[in-house]
Amino acid sequence: DGCIQFTRHAGDVLLNFNRLRSRDILTDVTIQVDGQHFHAHKAILVACSGFFYSVFMDPKNTNLSAISLDPKVDPKGFSILLDFMYTSCLDLKDSLVLATMNTAIYLQMEHVVDTCHRFINSS
């Protein structure tokens, strides 16, 4: 017995989720950040962020379809992290790495925080 492992499968699935997001198909939540609106899939947000996990695992938030983040959250940092969730690529520009790191702290994405720290220390 054995199995055939499709090594590209995880990437192919994530790419399809990103295509669904870009076409606003089956998105089930709108995240409002400082006046900007981002449509996304709760399952991806919960899978990638400790913050969203705690929000959407709370029974009273079962039917939540819109959520406003704390005004201190930078929309550009959030946009970079949302793209990361759907592509595994973290866009790091010197001018935005601090905003990205602070947003990752807020979203409880510790591994991304560590990576931003190392990027800041190395540059």
Partner: peptide, 21 residues
Amino acid sequence: YEGVNTIKEMGRSIHEIPRQD
């Protein structure tokens, strides 16, 4: 899933959702 008899398939595994219809 690293079984003894795992064969690795490098090709695409599922359909690709188009950028638009």
